[in-house]
Design a binder for these strands. Structure first.
Lengths: 162, 162
DNA sequence: GGATGGATGTTATAGTATCACATTCGATCA
DNA sequence: TGATCGAATGTGATACTATAACATCCATCC
């Protein structure tokens, strides 16, 4: 499926999920290497679990997944890993869902813009510079210096709207 | 302080807070009356407490304020009131703060766009149709039907940036 | 007055996130 | 080698946010 403009399409059934996860991990390794940050086994594993789902995942769901393979996994275990991954730009938090999702374009620091389907839970990441620009312009008129944007749009995807 | 464009300015010290709260309550009465919805004493009081602060307020802070005057106030007491007020468009939830704030323009149904100062906690409500339009256009390209937007921009206001 | 449905009271619990301190691990260097 | 130091993780407790489930009250309408 071709990418249209700045919007990443919703994931369809045809995408090669295994390689998509692998790619994400590979990119993460490279990025952390470049930055001198440590993608430890735990952090890597949490990132992998996040990508495995390919939809927003809750912290305690991650904790449950970890529990099977890592005795003594506790809430701080997963929250710390998520904090690291978020700081690294590898994972975004979706505030309106209290859930986390892998960043589609971690190479470039950006603020996340999401379309969230109420029907099926699928999420598409947008990264529209025009949107960011408009917000920046509005902010500037108030003397406001933007640090981070949160844009979360709920609605129905093509499949669910019909 | 004059309003500039679509952006509501940050509240300054000079604004007449008492009348601003009164206005909000007055408008709420009218709106609920028109719509046949019941702005009960409890709901009215919660709305008043929200406006009193004029900044994002947490549910349990509201609960603490209520506790003094209303024995047996419990979490559902305040969450129910907030649910009603949100449905009525009188209050917005700021997802990134888990907090609630009075809607500056309840007359017209709209989705909230906020500038949030990390320094002082002040919040300004934007309502930029151009922004909404851009999002709608992006969504349409994906066959996505927008139901609700959440736009929360964190940064530093003029006072805090200096 | 009685029926009805919405609003609120009440208790309990689910779900989300962080604190504080202990321990381990890894890199560096004497 | 092993001493040291800071980062990462383990560990137990707890704070914070939100909802479930059922009871009671109350306004309205007939």
């Amino acid at each position: 499926m071709a990418r249209r403009g700045v919007i990443q399409d919703f994931v369809d059934d045809k995408h090669d999920h295994a390689s998509c996860v692998e790619d994400a991990l590979q990119r993460a390794e490279v990025l952390c290497g470049e930055r001198g940050e440590r993608l430890t086994p735990l952090r890597r594993r949490v990132l992998e679990l996040v990508w495995d789902n390919h939809q927003p995942v809750k912290a305690y769901e991650l904790l449950a997944m970890l529990a099977g393979e890592r005795k003594r996994a506790a809430p701080p275990t997963v929250y710390r890993a998520l904090d690291f991954l978020r700081d690294a730009g590898l994972v975004h938090k979706i505030e309106s869902l209290n859930a986390f999702i892998g960043c589609a374009k971690p190479d470039r620091r950006h603020c996340a813009q999401f379309l969230i389907c109420i029907g099926c839970g699928a999420v598409a990441e947008m990264d529209d510079p025009a949107l960011t620009g408009k917000i920046a312009a509005n902010a500037k008129r108030l003397g406001f210096r933007v640090h981070q944007e949160t844009i979360e749009v709920e609605g129905y995807c093509g499949s669910c709207a019909g």
